[in-house]
C-alpha cells in the first residue's frame, strides 16, 4: 500500500509522547520540511515547542516576509534571529563547496544552542528528510554533499535530536502536510537548500555575488510561475539560478562588457533522488535571459540553461 499519511501522523503522535518531559527548540526555515516537522511536533509539545527562524543573509528575495506570513497561517509562533553578519563573515574567503556547507551547518548549530539555552530546551527538532542523510553519506555510502542538518552536527551536542520525517521524501512530506491541514501555498513551495544562496554562488561567497544570484533567482521564479499559470508549461519541481563567477566578453550599447554568467536550472522530480531537466519553452527562457541581462547589466552579460539530469549532476550545483 502506498504511503499512508494519516497512519503516519497517528504513529508519530504516539511516538512523540515519550518526549513530553522537556522543552524543544526547532529551526523553521519557512520551507516545507521544517514547517511540517514543527506542526507535527507541536501536537505533542504544545507551548513547550520554541520555533526559531534564522536569517542567514543567504535567503531568497522577500523570503523572511513570506516565511513569517506562512508561520502565521500554520499557527506557529516564531522568533526571528538575524545572524546574517555571522554567516557572511564565516564564509569569507571560502570557495570549497563542502567547506561552505560545513561552516553553515556549524553556525546553524551555534545559533540553535544559544536559543536552546535561552529556553532551557532538552531537544532539538529538525525537519531532516531521507535525501539529507542519504546524500550526506556514512559508512559504505559515499558523501555526495553534506546537508546542513546532518553534516554540521557536532559529535557532542548538548541536545537530543528528534527527526520525525527522517524516513520520508518530499512527496510524502507534502502528503503529511495536507493531512495536518497545512495550507497548500506552504506545502507546495519548491525545495530550497538549507545553506541557501551560498551554494548557488560557485566558489567564494560575497555579498555582491549573493545579491546578484538573489535577483536572478527571483526572475527565474517569477517567469516560470507566470508561465505555469498561463498554462505554457507545468511548474517544475525545482527552479532557480546559479552564479558562475566565470567572466565572458559581451557588447552592451556599443560598449565592451566583461561580466559573470548565470545558469538557469529547472528540473522535474518526484523525490529529488533522480531528476530530469525541465523542457522550458524557448520563449520563456528567452524572457528570463533578457530580464537577467538587462536588470544586471553591470554584472551579468551571459545566461545559459542547464540540460543535465540527476544523475550524473545533482539538482543544486554545489
Amino acid at each position: 500500500m502506498p504511503f499512508n499519511a494519516s497512519r503516519f501522523v497517528a504513529q508519530k503522535a504516539e511516538d512523540m509522547q515519550k518526549y513530553a518531559d522537556g522543552e524543544a527548540v526547532i529551526a523553521t526555515s519557512g520551507g516545507v520540511d521544517s514547517t511540517v516537522a514543527a506542526v507535527l511536533v507541536k501536537k505533542a509539545f504544545g507551548r513547550k515547542l520554541h520555533c526559531v527562524f534564522v536569517d542567514t543573509g543567504l535567503l531568497r528575495k522577500g523570503e523572511a516576509e513570506t516565511a513569517k506570513l506562512n508561520f502565521r497561517k500554520c499557527g506557529l509562533d516564531v522568533k526571528i534571529v538575524d545572524a546574517s553578519a555571522r554567516f557572511l563573515g564565516g564564509l569569507k574567503g571560502v570557495g570549497d563547496p563542502e567547506r561552505k556547507r560545513k561552516i553553515i551547518g556549524e553556525l546553524f548549530i551555534r545559533v540553535f544552542e544559544e536559543e536552546a539555552k535561552a529556553c532551557k530546551a532538552k531537544y532539538l527538532v529538525q525537519g531532516t528528510i531521507a535525501p539529507d542523510w542519504i546524500e550526506s553519506g556514512s559508512g559504505m555510502r559515499d558523501n555526495i554533499k553534506s546537508h546542513h542538518n546532518v553534516g554540521g552536527l557536532p559529535k557532542e551536542m548538548g541536545l537530543l535530536l528528534i527527526e520525525p520525517l527522517r524516513d520520508l521524501y518530499k512527496d510524502e512530506v507534502r502528503l503529511v502536510a495536507k493531512e495536518l491541514g497545512v495550507p497548500s501555498e506552504v506545502f507546495s513551495r519548491q525545495p530550497f537548500p538549507g545553506p541557501g544562496l551560498a551554494i548557488r554562488v560557485m566558489g567564494e561567497v560575497t555579498k555582491e555575488r549573493v545579491d546578484i544570484v538573489r535577483e536572478a533567482c527571483a526572475i527565474v521564479e517569477e517567469e516560470l510561475e507566470a508561465a505555469a499559470k498561463a498554462r505554457k508549461m507545468e511548474i517544475p519541481w525545482q527552479y532557480f539560478a546559479v552564479l558562475l563567477p566565470v567572466k565572458s566578453v559581451g557588447v552592451q550599447g556599443d560598449v565592451r562588457a566583461y561580466g559573470y554568467t548565470i545558469a538557469v536550472r529547472a528540473v522535474d522530480a518526484a523525490d529529488g533522488m533522480t531528476a530530469n531537466y525541465s523542457a522550458v519553452p524557448h520563449e520563456i527562457l528567452h524572457k528570463i535571459s533578457l530580464r537577467i541581462t538587462n536588470a544586471m547589466k553591470d554584472k551579468v552579460n551571459r545566461v545559459v540553461f542547464d540540460v543535465t539530469n540527476k544523475p550524473p549532476a545533482t539538482i543544486e550545483w554545489e
Partner: peptide, 27 residues
C-alpha cells in the same frame, strides 16, 4: 543488504509500498 547506494532507501520504500515488510541491513 545495503552496499552503500544513494537509492537503497528507495528499495525499502518500494517494497513497503508493495506491502512487503523490509529492513535495511549492513553488508
Amino acid at each position: 543488504i545495503d552496499l552503500g547506494s544513494q537509492w537503497t532507501h528507495r528499495i525499502w520504500r518500494t517494497l513497503r509500498d508493495l506491502d512487503c515488510e523490509s529492513e535495511i541491513l549492513p553488508p
